[in-house]
Write a protein that binds this DNA or RNA. Structure first.
Lengths: 345, 345
DNA sequence: CTGAAAGCGCTAACAA
DNA sequence: TTGTTAGCGCTTTCAG
């Protein structure tokens, strides 16, 4: 059995003929542009409905816009990003813009491929979530198309930015733990060598925030940072190392929830219990953290708000490419759960 | 400070002029089309590199292809789908095709919006993962663009399909539990009313497979199905109900891992322990399931393979739209972990 | 307010 | 093998 022959697409010419007007008129109605009488609009609208006409985005893009916003997500598996995405789509839901996602961006090469692909497809604006590419590269992208960078500290005149205040977030965790009576609070960070990224990436800021908060609370002597990676495996290795210390920490602040998962694993394996023997906190407030059996104390970044702001900014930037770039920083909140408690006597 | 003025894009005309050839020649080189001498190819390639030329996908789409494959994912949060996506992107990685994802497709309306948007953008092929839209709707989409449907049983001449053998998967779980000595094995299914979907959706097949397997093992009298939804909440409610039975089941087969999470929650709340008092199994083998502290027995659908097959099929369908449609069914495997054990004496 | 006509960047049909 | 030319479907001047 054969699939039916593909039908010819209804074009603007069909609509114009059917409505007895010019294609220009139809185009104006489509774009709500100035210069079309109410009667004409009504006539055209009717023709559009009757024919089931849909404008061809690619063809529109050749002269005007494609009404498409590209979103690049680094890791679809990290449960924090869907939150941001929801914020973006919700903010764009009532506009004519359609969101399209670029998948699987692990590393600079993949990011370059995806951003290029989006530019080639004439996207009107880009939202890059937690990109790892160099600043130069980001500015290059931004010079081709309005761009908002999410989750990278350090601003650029070339693009707008939305970040979470990671220093503050780390401080919330340390403060919470110290308030419970902990002194030996350790931190597991994501290993970072690149000097640019050292300044701009959230992971580095969280480690910084941890150190600053420890000092501010007079706990400088207990500062203890293990460098692994923001993965479950990294958390597991980091915790292993911490548990072998002569003086074991009584609390571990993992730089991300996935890391905390690995920590919980290692702690259980060592025959210790959480939070009686050791407290554990994460960052991101992912679904994992909220899950009853785990109930991980974490920091909420308000991903939804981050997304909404990014969407708003990219729309503004599309409308006016020449206003100065802006940076939005959102305050995180602490979500205390059952993995943190008073330290053992 | 103002963003730099956007540079004019390098076009095929620029390349042609720079290489001293016609635009046709450049176009041929771009598409590896017949009729260009090696010297010409080399010359054009060099010009392309020197100018940093990139073809404009929208413009290409107006005559030929856009080299874009659209993937629609129902719920980015469900950890099973990234697996499928990885399979797709990997299979497409060495081709000229770029994958773009449509976000947030919960419900028929959202699905329609996304599929329309993809068609409007001239995508060359679509992969629809676990769509809920009506068969008619899917065939409508497929009539406009080569389409592969993933995770819907029931074939159509209009589109290719890739599915997991859910009946077999359910059978693996029931067999495993029965082998451990369980008799009172209950199932939590996703409530389904729509008659079409009743036949085509994986959730319905899993419930069917459960019933068939129970009968085949002579356990028909213990068949016990609770209808809630494939969410953590649904699992929680379903388990609550099961735990109140005069004769409590000794094992619960949850139709999905997220459901099993809710079950674990409810079981813990009831003061029972897993697997000593009650065994729990899920379906999908998500990251959740693999996580050490949970260690959920589950069914692996080989999401990666599903994705690879879908990508392969869509490419074939783009090349030749007139071969008969095909259905691929992949066998699932059981992944026994620590939530299932012998029933209590 | 309305429409004719000229492209946007590319590919395909056709000539040379 | 190569180049010329006519569109693809739309937006955008620019006359009327």
């Amino acid at each position: 059995m054969k699939p039916p022959a593909p039908r010819r697409r209804v074009t603007i010419v069909d609509v114009a003929r059917h409505a007895q007007v010019s294609t220009t008129a139809v185009s104006k109605v489509l774009r709500n542009a100035y210069g079309a009488s109410p009667e004409m609009r009504a006539k055209v609208r009717r023709a559009i409905d009757e024919l089931g006409y849909r404008p061809h985005a690619g063809a529109r893009g050749l002269r005007g816009q494609t009404y498409t916003i590209g979103v690049m997500l680094p890791d679809i598996r990290n449960p924090f990003f869907p939150e941001v995405l929801d914020g973006i789509t919700q903010a764009l839901e009532d506009t004519e813009y359609q969101v399209l996602l670029g998948p699987g961006c692990n590393g600079e090469k993949a990011e370059a491929r995806v951003t290029e692909a989006m530019i080639d497809r004439g996207m009107d604006g880009l939202i890059l979530v937690a990109p790892v590419s160099s600043r130069t590269r980001l500015e290059h992208v931004a010079s081709a198309v309005p761009t908002v960078v999410v989750g990278r500290h350090g601003s650029s005149p070339g693009y707008d930015a939305v970040v979470n205040d990671d220093i503050e977030g780390a401080s919330l965790v340390v403060g919470h733990l110290a308030g419970l009576g902990h002194r030996r609070i350790a931190h597991i960070e994501h290993h970072e060598t690149d000097p640019t990224r050292l300044a701009e990436m959230p992971n580095a800021r969280r480690a910084d925030g941890y150190r600053q908060a420890m000092r501010a609370l007079g706990l400088a002597e207990w500062i203890d940072v293990v460098s692994t990676s923001y993965t479950q495996e990294g958390g597991y290795r980091g915790a292993k190392e911490l548990l072998e210390r002569p003086q074991r920490p009584t609390a571990v602040f993992a730089g991300a929830d996935v890391v905390a998962m690995g920590v919980l694993d290692a702690v259980a394996e060592a025959g210790l219990s959480v939070p009686d023997d050791i407290s554990v906190a994460g960052y991101d407030n992912t679904t994992f953290a909220a899950f009853g059996l785990i109930s991980l104390t974490s920091v909420d970044q308000a991903g939804h708000e981050i997304g909404r702001n990014a969407a708003r900014l990219v729309l503004e930037r599309i409308t006016d490419r020449h206003t100065p770039s802006v940076q939005v920083s959102l305050a995180p909140t602490l979500v205390p759960r059952r993995t943190t408690a008073r330290p053992p006597e």
